[in-house]
Simulated assay, not measured.
Amino acid sequence: MGKPTRWVTETKPGHSQWYIDRFRRLAAEGADLAGEARLLDAMVPPGARILDAGCGTGRVGAELAARGHRVVGVDADPALIGAARADHPGPRWLVADLAELDLAAQGEPEPFDAAVCAGNVLAFVAPGTERAVLARIAAHVRPDGILVVGFGTDRGYPLTEFDADAVSTGLHLEHRFATWDLRPWRDDADFAVTVLRKPVG
Rank of each mutant, 00 (worst) to 15 (best):
R67E: 00
G128Q: 11
E130H: 13
G128I: 03
T57M: 12
L26K: 15
H69G: 06
L103V: 00
W7A: 08
A37Q: 13
L94Q: 11
P109E: 12
V71G: 01
N120E: 05
F112K: 04
D21K: 07
R25V: 07
G56A: 08
V71E: 00
H88K: 07
T57S: 14
L51W: 07
S16L: 08
A104L: 00
G107Q: 04
D87P: 10
N120Y: 02
R25E: 15
G128T: 05
H88Q: 11
G107M: 02
A31E: 14
A84M: 11
E108T: 11
A96P: 13
L98N: 12
I81G: 01
Q17W: 07
L98S: 13
H69R: 07
F124M: 15
R38N: 09
A31N: 12
L39T: 05
A132I: 03
A105R: 10
A84R: 09
G56T: 03
A84W: 12
L40C: 09
A132P: 13
L33R: 13
P46A: 06
A48D: 01
I20M: 08
D87M: 02
H88N: 15
T57C: 13
R136Y: 01
R70D: 12
D102G: 05
V121A: 11
G47P: 12
T129P: 15
L26C: 00
P45S: 09
E63T: 12
R136E: 00
A65N: 10
P111T: 02
L51D: 03
V121R: 14
G107V: 02
F23R: 08
A104D: 10
A66T: 04
L98I: 06
V125L: 10
D97R: 11
I20Q: 08
T57P: 14
A27P: 03
W7D: 06
L101F: 04
V71W: 01
K12H: 15
A48Y: 04
V8K: 14
P4S: 00
D102F: 06
E63Q: 14
A96T: 06
V125C: 11
P111I: 02
C117H: 09
T57N: 15
G30I: 05
D87A: 08
D41F: 07
F124G: 10
L80D: 07
V133P: 13
A84N: 12
K3Q: 14
V133T: 05
A114Q: 14
A31K: 15
R85N: 07
D52P: 06
R6V: 11
H69L: 07
L98K: 13
D113Y: 01
R131E: 15
A126H: 11
P111M: 00
K3A: 14
V121P: 14
A118G: 01
V74C: 09
K12P: 07
L51R: 07
W93K: 05
P78N: 10
Y19L: 14
A139N: 02
A79E: 15
A65I: 01
D102Y: 09
A42Y: 04
G54M: 02
A114L: 14
V95I: 06
D21L: 07
A132D: 15
A104Y: 04
V71H: 00
D102V: 02
D87E: 12
A139P: 09
T57Y: 08
L80R: 12
E36P: 14
C117Q: 12
P4D: 02
F112R: 03
V71P: 02
E110P: 08
P46M: 01
A105S: 09
D97G: 07
G107K: 05
I81R: 07
A86Y: 06
A139E: 01
A66R: 15
L122N: 03
